[in-house]
Amino acid sequence: MSWFNTFFNSSIGKKFFMGLTGISLILFLKFHLVNNLSLFGGPEVFNTVVKNLESIKPIVRVIEVILALIFLIHIFNGLRLWLENKKARPQKYAVNGSSKNSTVYSRTMVQTGTIVFIFLIVHLRTFWMSFNNIGVNGITDHKYYEFVAASFTDPIYSGFYVIAMILLGFHLNHGFQSLFQTFGWTHKKYTPIINIIGTVYSVVVATAFAIIPIYFLMKGGN
């Protein structure tokens, strides 16, 4: 497996795995979002969705483990790239001209990624742990919807969600088209379309996720 090591640790290999894990996470987000949108169907719909997931818990657990691994590789490679890339330029420029040659999304992947990661911890702690009855905030009677609604009545908490989702959008906006480039999937005709799809996807995902806390905040908790 020395070839795998060589590839995994090469500059292009690291990016390849960033892309591979990235696209997996993008797919996961889509699934997650569809589930979340069932909140707009009211308590019954949402609670049923969650109950259904409960019923296939072993499968969900396996997927969660895989997902966690994907996250870890994504984060590990991201940090590795960030540290190595910093080392590649030990002395910074006195005048930073990067705003003239690149987008802010592309330059801030580590920053947006880190905030999304912090968000993820908070998010897991609030919802995943509660939904799974781990720790203190256990949910009784399958009142998941009510729990979500109550959680978002805190304006600071909801505000953090919204900001995190906007940054997730930034992260996705670069990540989506970037992974096509990393895989070498560029094409004179299709790349511009992919770039548009990427931006639309990022905006949709970020907006849809962000609307949920705003919706409950404005609705006032029920």
Partner: peptide, 11 residues
């Protein structure tokens, strides 16, 4: 040689 990796900023 210690060049960094490409993060597709296209600068």
């Amino acid at each position: 040689l210690g060049f960094g990796s490409c993060t597709n900023t296209y600068a």
